[in-house]
Design a protein around this nucleic acid. Structure first.
Lengths: 139, 139
DNA sequence: AATTATATTAAAACCATTCTAAACTGTTGA
DNA sequence: TCAACAGTTTAGAATGGTTTTAATATAATT
């Protein structure tokens, strides 16, 4: 449980003005028991359900991008249709259930160490992401 | 080097009528020394340069999707802006150079075996893809 | 050659995302 | 406290990759 005051602190410390829209989005994203995955569309629906006032779609995009840049969110590449975000910003991997279009976290422990044996001159590794696609098991 | 006749065979064997558009796309995609990565936009430019006649954008999309469904191409998820395709359909992984927006193949050997220790009931693993993001190394 | 099924096409539609520029709000410092 | 400024929100328009449409063309079958 994080208080509104703590979100205001967090925002200010990040150089982001604590507007009521950003505080609301913080509450929706970071005041949950567990981390979760969402699309912008999902998020807008949650906000509309929880809030009594409407937030402009442009503001939702702006805020999500600001949070991503600050490292409070991670974008998960799955397909080219839509952006998926994750409130779990620790290093981890994903299952993607193709039929249900749902993401499931895969801890580092569940995948084991990955050793990249190749390198590209002048470039350094920024991240290593494993995506495991799942299909219905009808044998 | 694959002849036009062989492409016609391949198409027919796949249940795809060998139209001159599809044959042209086959030649652009599968008549190369090495496999490569491309976006639809890249492909259209290559076709326009190589061919004397124009192929409709809708046909390019249709054909790429048909080829993907037949397993002649793989889509690589990188970000949500654009679809990237790979003419290398063997199991392998990728580097993604963020600054240059370029994909580089990573052989299975370069990554080593990946052991997924978690499972989801009723679901089976369809694919395991590793995406290694690269950044300019300015230390 | 006629018929049928499939493919191509240009243009319109679609839809997630970004941009615009005007109105609004938080912050700062006098 | 309040004016001034910089940063933020907003609705709506614009963008751009992708898909759909429905008319025309082509390949396959008879």
């Amino acid at each position: 449980m994080t208080t509104t005051v703590e979100f205001i602190e967090k925002l200010r410390n990040s150089g982001l003005r604590p507007t009521k829209q950003r505080i609301k989005i913080c509450e929706v994203l970071f005041n949950k028991e567990t981390t979760f995955h969402f699309t912008i569309n999902d998020l807008v629906k949650i906000i509309e359900k929880e809030a009594n006032e409407k937030i402009s779609l442009a503001t939702v995009y702006n805020t999500i991008h600001a949070f991503e840049k600050k490292g409070y969110l991670k974008e998960i590449p799955i397909d080219a249709n839509q952006s998926y975000f994750d409130t779990n910003v620790t290093d981890h991997h994903h299952f993607y259930d193709i039929s249900e279009k749902k993401l499931i976290d895969l801890d580092q422990v569940d995948v084991g160490p990955i050793n990249i044996k190749k390198s590209v001159p002048g470039k350094k590794i920024k991240s290593v992401e494993v995506l495991v696609k799942l299909d219905t098991d009808n044998q």
